[in-house]
């Protein structure tokens, strides 16, 4: 097992709003590993929509995704892709 960390710029024009947070948490929950999401030193459970919303992540911030567990590498890759693709919202 290993820990994977990726820093990804949040470029989505509406930031990490409710639906985007929901997509992130939903994808994160498909993996067994632990998923943490951080902004500017504040880190929360990446599988919880509520936790993610408490970050108030606005466009332009850097998100730190870290995963730890058996499928951590696959998870971090998928979550990074979701953020880079602006949560599928164009």
């Amino acid at each position: 097992m290993a820990t994977f960390v990726r820093e990804v710029p949040l470029l989505h024009r509406t930031g990490l709003h409710l639906r985007a947070a929901g997509k992130f948490a939903e994808l994160a929950a498909r993996y067994q590993c632990e998923v943490r999401l951080g902004v500017a030193g504040k880190v929360v459970n990446g599988k919880s929509v509520l936790d993610i919303l408490t970050l108030g992540a606005a466009p332009g911030v850097n998100l730190t995704i870290s995963t730890d567990g058996p499928d951590a590498e696959e998870a971090v890759r998928a979550l990074e892709a979701l953020v880079r693709q602006n949560f599928g919202e164009g």
């Binding site: 930031g15 709003h17 919303l53 408490t54 970050l55 108030g56 606005a58 466009p59």
Partner: peptide
């Protein structure tokens, strides 16, 4: 955009 995220953040912290 930022004010909306901030408002949502406040509500979820409360929640």
């Amino acid at each position: 955009v930022e004010a909306h995220l901030e408002a949502m953040k406040k509500v979820t912290l409360l929640l």
